[in-house]
């Protein structure tokens, strides 16, 4: 069991190498708008998250995730 803030910090660590613009990360940070990631970056990042937590984030799920906070919630559910 990971608690939410722990999860958020872990994800922050994973985002950092892809955070080329040094954007401040909070629950509401969006991948497309704030981080300006393109589809290549997204794919690499999703694979990174999947491997770290040994989970699969389906494209169906990805479609619903726009912010870092939503990602944290989704990953928490998947690792449970």
């Amino acid at each position: 069991m990971t608690d939410r803030s722990e999860m958020f910090d872990k994800l922050k660590g994973l985002i950092e190498p892809f955070n080329k613009k040094g954007v401040d990360l909070n629950d509401a940070t969006t991948f497309a708008g704030d981080l300006e990631w393109d589809s290549l970056t997204v794919m690499d990042f999703v694979a990174e998250v999947e491997d770290t937590f040994d989970i699969v984030i389906t494209m169906n799920m990805q479609a619903e995730i726009e912010t870092v906070g939503q990602l944290a919630d989704a990953v928490l559910k998947l690792v449970d």
């Binding site: 497309a32 589809s39 290549l40 999703v46 995730i65 726009e66």
Partner: peptide, 21 residues
């Protein structure tokens, strides 16, 4: 090698990731 692709439209959104594709 590569990543994103064929069916994919480079949209905006994590999410837009692939789905908008």
């Amino acid at each position: 090698t590569s990543a994103a692709t064929s069916g994919h439209l480079r949209c905006h959104g994590l999410i837009s990731i692939c789905v908008p594709a």
